[in-house]
Design a protein around this nucleic acid. Sequence first.
RNA 1: GUGCCUGUAGCUCAAUGGAUAGAGCGUCGGACUACGGAUCCGCAGGUUGGUGGUUCAACUCCACUCAGGCACACCA
Length: 517
Amino acid sequence: MKLTKAYGLAPLKLAETIAEFIKAPMFSKIEVKAPGFINFYLSNDTVYQNAYNVLKLNENFGRVNIGNGVKVNVEFGSVNPTGPISVSHGRQVVLGDIFSSMLEFTNHSVAREYYCNDAGNQIRNLGKSVLVRYRQALGAKVEFPEDGYHGDYVMEIARELIAIHGEKYQAEGPADEDVITLFGDYSQTKMIKEIVGVCEKMGVKYDTIYSERSLYSDGIVAQTLEFLKANALTYEKDGATWFLSTKFNDEKDRVLVKSDGKSTYALSDIAYHKTKYSRGFRQLITFLGADHHGYIKRLHAAVSALGVPPETLTILIHQFVTMLKDGQVVRMSKRAANYVELNELIDDVGVDAVRYFFIMRKMDAHLDFDINLAKSQSTDNPVFYLQYCHARCHGVLNEARTKGFDVAIDKIAALPHDIVKKLDSPEEVAILKRAADFPKIMEECVKNYAPHLLCHYAEDFVKLFQSFYTKGKIDKNFRIVTDDKDLSSARLFLIYVVLITTRNILKVMKLSTPERM
RNA sequence: GUGCCUGUAGCUCAAUGGAUAGAGCGUCGGACUACGGAUCCGCAGGUUGGUGGUUCAACUCCACUCAGGCACACCA
């Protein structure tokens, strides 16, 4: 239709003309429909060839080469180590992990990274909070700082410190700053361990935990500042050193070194990104919560200042999670300490459900997480539906085996074309066709940064099979294993296509693949 | 005040600028009486928040507007 002007022909007429010229054996039918569409119908032979390919590729079915092995750094879940990890961060961790998994599946060399903000005021604040709780626990009348961390975990840490140090730091003293540092470091180490532990419990394993503090001790911050100065990207104003980030489209310039001589987060952040490139990564992906959307321009300015094409950095913003329990919104706030902890949620609904629910919606949209619904092991649980399909395929193969069929995959994969083409009902052809879409879906997920598309595809695909399968319960002619040996073999071929596709989907999402449920 | 995200069926959400806007849940009707278990089929349900604009074609792009969410530090 876009060509109609160029050729001066009516759309329908033009489509007919084009259709005339296209003749290929892979299409069984080519038709022209108003107002000017050309429909190509894949011939069944093409469908069967694709299906043979599924069995041949097996666990590699669905892989597409998008990345050419490029080194990608995926940073996600970089929670400040000042408290337990919350469910909104959980969403980010799962998004980052599964997207990384998708990148690996599409031939990228991925490093999962956690950036640990262990260098700023918040650690001092944490240390101070713990110190006050420590003293309170020992009976002192000390006012808790309003901007301190109010969660119960602070008291837990304080008790641990009492167990370790006794009453050594009970009295206020001139060395309090040192104590705050000591307590802060202890607390921070403990929190990071706990956060990473919860992530591992969810099946997420980081390749690197990068410490902000190390940027200072390794001299990278200082080097970065020198680099920026040498390139005339800084200036002095009001006793502070500023980064000329407006030159790279940022909304305002940023302070790098405060008038008191201390560096800001903005500076260490530039230094951090510098290391990502110097560590050999050629593509950076950073997941941030919606509250950080203001960073996008700043970070792009940062990498531009480093002389790197800004498009090598992709920042993905995800919206928050609203937890619903018994129809009530559960508020989440670290400060107020009445938020839902990710750890509790995992215990509550299970790893697979948590992982799936967190990626099933596009990240731009808010996610309502109904705890009651996720907990219910009913059939409206899509995870259950997918895993059941996988288990069912195994069940059918076992059934066939007991009836004397050789169900080894290489045996089934070697079935002659004449047998496979017995899969000619519209339902069977539809399943085979939809399975063949899997690689294309993977590509869309990665290129559009949209992992949720895989969920929609998976549910759609599995439904086709479940529907066909149920047909066999009503009409014996649609059963998988029947008296007709050739037809049964053909249908076992179909089972393998479904099994492989479903299993590979589950594996990309790093969900368990039960053979029986 | 400025900026970012969202608004689609009763609910939760899909839809590279393309054909009659699709699923799940829920409602209603039907099938199955089961370890090849824990389901399947169908009906109903829509002015895609609103108003303009661009286009052969708009849920999709642009402008304005309404509603909700989130940010706008010499904090991190």
